[in-house]
């Protein structure tokens, strides 16, 4: 929070003029009947998405020319707030004149863009972004009905954040490449989680299959495991001696994290690596004991031996561990 957030947004003032106009006077509100479509030799598709009990429901009508698959007319009915009605209206507008195959490509982002007054100012405040997602979902459903396939089949990748349309693959990649550690960073980099917030963790507006918190945790875990594996590889291939000092310290830290630290911590102690000195004969690793280890009798015998043999086994047989 900061100065501009102290008062908080006035929800309705954040709507674009277009949203306001369409809410007050939707252009494509209404129904298309079976008879009407048939009289033009066309096919009628009617699909629902959402429900009153969710607080939002939309019914989409498509009159389709079966020879060209073109949507020649479209209407909607909506139970919802102003942005839901305006989003539905723009959605029908975007559908008209497109083939069904083209229409499935319309996303909630397109709907939101079409509601903007100026290209770089959002049409709705973040928590309302979700209303346009319904428009996208109902289109897929209608297309599925027409083509006789499951609506899910139009989705090529797994979308984790519907509001910002960010896929699982993108999220994993961004976390890795930028070494992200928090949800806020993910939102800064990708916008995911910046709108209705359903995708951040369980318990939000809508239940999800994937949540950002889990994706972050899993990806971090994988990254850590890979680091270990890399360190282990380095040892196995005899590369440890060829590493730079920084790489050596990292590799040692990784091994200690994996195999040593937990035992020290169990007894209320810990250790840190102070320095490494490479000579022809030895690689001397200087360590300092912390906490309960400091002054513990076995820290110069059993424990020391255990640390040294672990590092020897995993990294290099030339290692000597010297406590200071």
């Amino acid at each position: 929070m900061a100065k501009n957030d102290i008062l908080g947004d006035s929800l309705w003032d954040a709507y674009s003029d277009k949203v306001t106009t369409l809410m007050n006077n939707p252009q494509h509100q209404g129904e298309i009947t079976e008879e009407e479509a048939a009289s033009h030799g066309n096919k009628l598709i009617v699909a629902d998405f959402g429900a009153e009990s969710c607080g939002d429901a939309v019914r989409l009508y498509w009159e389709i020319d079966p020879k060209t698959d073109k949507i020649v007319n479209s209407k909607f009915k909506s139970f919802g707030c102003g942005t839901a009605i305006a989003s539905s209206d723009v959605m029908t507008e975007l559908c008209i004149g497109k083939t069904v195959q083209e229409a499935v490509k319309i996303t909630n982002i397109d709907v939101e863009l079409a509601l903007r007054d100026t290209p770089d100012v959002p049409a709705v405040p973040p928590q309302k972004m979700h209303c346009s997602v319904m428009a996208y979902d109902v289109i897929k459903k209608a297309a599925g009905l027409y083509m006789g396939v499951d609506a899910e089949s139009f989705e090529e990748e797994i979308i984790v954040c519907e509001c910002a349309r960010v896929s699982l693959g993108t999220l994993q990649e961004v976390i890795r490449l930028n070494d992200l550690t928090t949800i806020e960073q993910i939102t800064d980099y990708t916008k995911a989680g910046g709108f209705c917030k359903s995708c951040i963790k369980p318990g939000g507006h809508e239940a999800r299959e994937y949540y950002l918190v889990d994706i972050l945790a899993d990806t971090r875990k994988q990254m850590d495991e890979e680091k270990m594996a890399a360190a282990a590889d380095a040892g196995a291939s005899g590369d440890f001696e060829g590493m730079t000092l920084v790489q050596q310290i990292k590799a040692i830290d990784a091994v200690i994290d994996e195999s040593v630290r937990q035992f020290l911590v169990m007894d209320g102690g810990d250790m840190e690596v102070i320095d490494i000195k490479n000579s022809d004969e030895y690689i001397d690793v200087y360590i300092r004991y912390l906490g309960a280890c400091n002054g513990c009798a076995s820290s110069s015998t059993g424990t020391l031996y255990a640390i040294e043999s672990t590092l020897k086994e995993k990294l290099s047989s030339k290692i000597r561990v010297l406590p200071i």
Binding site: D48, A51, C54, A57, V58, R59, G144, E206
Partner: peptide
């Protein structure tokens, strides 16, 4: 109500209906 899907007359194409909402648990 004139805009509302709750008062729409034309029913969804078979398969186009919605099961009860799972939001707002």
């Amino acid at each position: 109500r004139a805009i509302s899907s709750s008062y729409a007359k034309v029913q969804p194409t078979p398969g186009g209906e919605v099961q009860e909402c799972e939001l707002h648990h």
